[in-house]
């Protein structure tokens, strides 16, 4: 029996990014196919914890706290830059395992099977794991965004204790891309051995 945690973070305007709704659809679908499993939603954002907003190390602490507090065995999250940065560390902290760039998800005979690409999308693997918690970071465009009806939810705040001295990074803001940046195609050709 699995306890599935759908994990998402809010954007600056307090809404969920579109890709989060796709991951939610994956979490809902997976929970429905796993008999006896339950779905919990974990959100990281200003309303949950001011310190958890847009700072890498606090994102890691916040997600680790949510996964730990929920007792989730499976975690489904969208592949945003924030989660790509913070979820691997949180998973390591909890002794779990993580699969990123998940491009397919199915449940066969109660076993969760994940599909992801290797060698820069040159071969595709179907795989599973027994270790828990198992974090699945879902790529965009794999699932149709969840479009269910809104309903009232019971919200529980999970406190994240962050020592101010430990957090040494401040996010200044966002800027547009650099001009004349080398691209992978022009620079990735390394000397052959």
């Amino acid at each position: 029996m699995e306890k599935v945690l759908f994990l998402a973070h809010t954007q600056d305007d307090g809404t969920l990014p579109g890709i989060a709704l796709e991951a939610l659809a994956a979490a809902v679908e997976m929970t429905a196919k796993l008999p006896g499993s339950s779905l919990v939603v974990g959100l990281v954002g200003k309303d949950v914890s001011q310190a958890a907003e847009a700072i890498g190390s606090s994102d890691c602490a916040a997600t680790a706290a949510l996964i730990g507090q929920s007792g989730a065995t499976m975690v489904v999250a969208p592949a945003t830059s924030r989660f790509s940065r913070s979820l691997p560390g949180a998973t390591q902290r909890l002794g779990g395992r993580i699969e990123t760039h998940v491009s397919g998800l199915e449940v066969v005979d109660g076993v969760i099977r994940v599909q992801r690409w290797y060698y820069r999308q040159r071969m595709v693997a179907t795989q599973t794991r027994v270790q828990r918690p198992w974090v699945l970071v879902i790529d965009g465009g794999v699932f149709a965004p969840w479009a269910g009806a809104a309903a009232a939810a019971t919200v529980e705040n999970v406190a994240v204790s962050l020592d101010a001295a430990v957090v040494r990074t401040t996010v200044i803001g966002v800027q547009s891309g650099l001009r004349n940046r080398p691209t992978a195609s022009s620079t990735s050709r390394m000397p052959q051995i």
Binding site: G56, S57, C60, S81, S84, R85, S86, L87, P88, G89, T91, Q92, R93, I98, E99, T100, H101, W117, Y118, Y119, R120, Q121, V166, V167, R168, T169, L178, R181, S188
Partner: peptide
């Protein structure tokens, strides 16, 4: 990496070494 292409190893190494300040996709 261009093999596993998971983008998780550096954060895990950092976590094991107790380094909490982590940055991904750095260009400058």
């Amino acid at each position: 990496s261009a093999s596993r292409d998971a983008g998780v190893t550096m954060q895990m190494v950092g976590e094991q070494l107790g380094i909490t300040e982590q940055f991904l996709g750095v260009d400058e």
